[in-house]
Design a protein around this nucleic acid. Structure first.
Length: 154
DNA sequence: GCCAACGTTGGC
DNA sequence: GCCAACGTTGGC
C-alpha cells in the first residue's frame, strides 16, 4: 500500500509550477535527519505526496506529486560549490539522500494552511501543529484524501 | 521584521 | 551526557 506524505518547498525556490514544467525532479538539499530517514527508509515509488508551499502567500497545499524513484545519495552534499555542501559527507558515506518526485496535479487554487487548521476532519494532521517544521512528513491516508476533496471544493 | 519552536554544536 | 548558545524554519 502506497504511503502518503507532505513535502514542503518555498515556491520562490521551487514551486509546483516548476515541477509541472520539469515533470520530475530530484528532491535534494534535505539536511534534517528525521526527514532523511523518512525518505531513505519509508518512501517508495508510487507513494503519494501533498506538495506544500511554505513561506508563501498563503502557505498551503498547492498540488499532488508521487515518488518516482527511491532514495539515492544526494550529490549536492559532496559538491563544495553547492549551497547544500556538507563537509562530513563522503562517497563512502554520503549521509544525505534524494528521492525523485513526479508531478501529478496542480490544484486550481492552493488549499491554505488556515483552511486545513479550520477543518475538524484534519485534526491531528502534523502540518497544522504549532512549531512543526519538518519538511517531509507522513500523512494519514484519510487526511490526504480530505485535502484532495478540499481542493475540489468538497 | 518579529519571534516561537526546534535542531545542532561545542564546551565542560 | 548536560545544556547554553546559536542557527534555521516558517507563520504571522
Amino acid at each position: 500500500m502506497a504511503r502518503c506524505w507532505l513535502m514542503k518547498s518555498e515556491p520562490d525556490t521551487y514551486a509546483i509550477d516548476d515541477l509541472a514544467r520539469d515533470g520530475t525532479t530530484l528532491w535534494d538539499g534535505v539536511r534534517n535527519y528525521q526527514a532523511r530517514n523518512y525518505m531513505r527508509d519509508d518512501m517508495k515509488v508510487g507513494d503519494r505526496v501533498l506538495f506544500y508551499h511554505s513561506s508563501a502567500t498563503p502557505p498551503g497545499v498547492a498540488g499532488l506529486a508521487e515518488i518516482s524513484a527511491d532514495a539515492t545519495p544526494d550529490a549536492t552534499a559532496l559538491d563544495p560549490d553547492d549551497d547544500h555542501y556538507d563537509p562530513k559527507a563522503t562517497d563512502a558515506d554520503p549521509r544525505w539522500v534524494v528521492v525523485e518526485l513526479r508531478h501529478v496535479e496542480t490544484f486550481p487554487e492552493v488549499v491554505p494552511l488556515a483552511t486545513l487548521k479550520a477543518d475538524p476532519a484534519l485534526a491531528g494532521m502534523l502540518v497544522i501543529q504549532r512549531g512543526q517544521r519538518l519538511s517531509v512528513q507522513p500523512v494519514e491516508p484519510a487526511h490526504f484524501d480530505r485535502v484532495v476533496a478540499l481542493a475540489r471544493g468538497r
